[in-house]
Each structure stands twice: as structure tokens, then as C-alpha cells.
Design a protein around this nucleic acid. Structure first.
Lengths: 196, 196
DNA sequence: ACCTGAACACCGTTCAAGT
DNA sequence: ACCTGAACACCGTTCAAGT
């Protein structure tokens, strides 16, 4: 028949991304091996290169997908019209932690310091911050919003980074420390806003 | 002569660690390749296995060395007898950032989420926190010290993690954001301490 | 148009043979 | 006792040949 390909596609870029992300979460970044990804989607290693340029690009694309999911989580927590911005930040803090614990290795990809060619699109990451800045603006005004958002995000990210790395080894309740941290940051934010 | 080795050592574990750390800082973790480390110390790849069990152990040892250096930086900033604990925390915050910027890839090793076999000794990392908790105890009392230290360290680590990853892309002055963050955290700490 | 096996380069690691 | 080249397994990537 005219228009019929001599060899129909047996997989898709989407299936490859899903397989790579599963492998990442199940066994870590080292397990994301081209031949293993290929096996999961039913082809051989070399066939992947029809859909992705190379392994680094595949991993970057997985990071972009994780970032997109995280963006949806952030947007769901922050309703622009809500009356209580501080409560939105609390909701965001909890949702953020839930997301990271459900996607630990994918999240690790977003802020991995190493090997820039594996890094997700920086513009996508920057966009994650915008709704948080907007919510902070409702809390402390436009002038202090960026600084407040950066402090909150740095704290939340640092906390999760350390929790995932198993760095909380001095005892105490980690759940409680997270809740305390949110309140401490919120207190510091309103304190700083009142002073300046 | 009796007691003389048939083949004298041409390198040392220490030299290997130094070479690996240099390579890490100069070109990143992927550049820490056994044959390249060996070249720097004047032997061939297989000879390294007389001094270190394997690449993962070598990288863990580099991480331990970085952690030890960071520990000295922390101890230098926090003088147990000083009158002003809040000022000690400010000093620590600045010293911490300076250290991370001088050792970006080494620091990245300490909190890399990926590949647990590359992770530095968790007990060594935990010890880094003890003097910080002690300083916080002077600031807010023993009860809130651990929570305050965790919030501060999570923020500082998160900030540096994001700065290294190039995640601050919404404009503004990053130096100022760091200084603001320290004050915000300190304000939140005293606020929380006064309340509870 | 896509898939495959063969091939190549690169790297971690082992080991027998040298000194 | 340590060093080395050869060898092996594994992986990313390319490519000629199939359909």
C-alpha cells in the first residue's frame, strides 16, 4: 500500500521516557542503561537513537518530565484567589515533601550538581518558582517576595535533599522538624516584612 | 639487602586522594577515571587497586576529606565561648558559602542523592551538625536547638545547592538574597523561641 | 522508515608475569 | 611487595545491511 512504512514503529519516545523514569526510580541513575531501557520498550539498544539523541538527552528529558509534574503539584497548592497566603505556603510545603518522597531519584535529577549535560532545562526549573513568588507577594508585598520565596524554596529543597541523603542523624522527629521549619520560615518572613 | 622491598612504592593513598580530588574539582565526577588518577600519580590504572578497593571507595574517601575540611571551617566560625551566638551563625553562614564556592564538586559529593555507594560516611556528616546545634542552644535554649539548627542547615545547603545548579534565574542579587536569608532565618528562630 | 547485529571506543577490574 | 600489560565484562554509540 502507498504510504505504508516499510518498517512500522515498535515503540515511541513517550514509552522510552516512561521506561527510563521507572528504571530511575526503581534502581537509580546508574540503572538507566540504554540496553535496559530498550528492553523495557521491546526493542534493542541502538533503536533508541531514532527517538533520542543520546543517553544524556534522555535523562534530561526525564528531568523535564519530573519538573513538569512538580509544577502541577505547586500550582495545585497555590490558588491565586485564596484568602490566606500563609496557609497556601503550608499546603505547598506539605505537597512538596510528598512529591519528593514519591519521586526521590527523579527529584534528585533536578538539582544534581554534577554533569551539566544531564541537567533539566533551567528555564523550566525557573518557571517553577514564579507562582511561589506570586504567593509570597500576597504575604509580604512585591518588594520582599523574591527574597522570601528564595528562602522558602532553598529551605524546602535543602531539607528534602538532606532527608533523601539520610543526613538527619542527630535524633528527633523528622516530620516534626519539617513542620517546625515551615512555621519558622513563615515567622521569619512576616518578621522581616514588618521590619523593612 | 634484607628488609628492602623488591619493588618500592611509587605512590601513596594520600597522593591518589589528592589527585582524585583535583580531577573532581577541575572537570567533574565523570573525569575521575581510574586511569587518569593513576596518570597523575605516575603509575598505571591497575596499581591503584593496591591502595583503594575500587573507584566507589576512592570517591567516598574524597567525600570524607571534603567533609573533614568543611568541619574545620564550621569549627573556626563557631567559638564556644563567644558572647554573641547570632553573630557566630552569621559568620558560619558566610564561611559555609565561601567553602562551597571553593569546593563546588567536592561539596556536591556530600549530598548527592544518587548512588549510595559513592556517599561519604554518614557519621562524619552527622558530626558536622553538632557544633551548630550547640551554638543554636546558646541562642534559643536546648529544647529548640536541634530544630533551629536543622532549619538553618537545610536552608544554607539548599541555597548553595541551588546556586551551584544555577537555579536562581528570576533576577535579583544572589549575594543579597543569601544575606537576607540568614537574617530571615535568625528572625524566625528568635520569633519561634519567644513563642514556644 | 525503522530495526538489528556487529563493531569500536572507553572504562572498571582481575590476574599472571615481571622486578 | 608493588608494578605492568593483557584480558574480560559492560556500556554508549555508529553503521551497514536487512525488511
Amino acid at each position: 500500500m502507498p504510504g505504508m512504512s516499510p518498517a512500522p514503529a515498535r515503540t515511541s519516545r513517550e514509552a522510552i521516557l516512561v521506561a527510563a523514569r521507572e528504571l530511575l526510580e526503581e534502581e537509580g541513575l546508574d540503572a538507566v542503561v540504554m540496553s535496559r531501557v530498550a528492553e523495557r520498550v521491546g526493542v534493542r539498544g541502538p533503536s533508541l537513537y531514532k527517538r533520542v539523541p543520546n543517553r544524556a538527552a534522555l535523562i534530561r528529558a526525564v528531568g523535564d518530565a519530573v519538573a513538569a509534574d512538580l509544577g502541577r503539584v505547586i500550582d495545585a497548592a497555590l490558588r491565586p484567589g485564596s484568602a490566606d497566603a500563609a496557609e497556601d505556603i503550608r499546603t505547598l510545603g506539605r505537597a512538596y515533601r510528598d512529591f519528593v518522597r514519591r519521586n526521590p531519584n527523579g527529584y534528585g535529577l533536578l538539582f544534581a550538581h554534577l554533569e551539566p549535560e544531564l541537567q533539566a532545562d533551567p528555564d523550566v526549573l525557573a518557571d517553577l518558582g514564579r507562582p511561589i513568588v506570586a504567593t509570597m507577594a500576597r504575604l509580604v508585598g512585591a518588594a520582599g517576595a523574591l527574597g522570601a520565596a528564595r528562602t522558602f524554596v532553598a529551605w524546602a529543597h535543602g531539607f528534602m535533599s538532606m532527608e533523601l541523603a539520610g543526613s538527619f542523624r542527630l535524633g528527633g522527629d523528622v516530620d516534626a522538624a519539617y513542620a517546625t521549619g515551615i512555621e519558622l520560615i513563615l515567622a521569619g518572613i512576616s518578621e522581616s516584612a514588618n521590619r523593612g
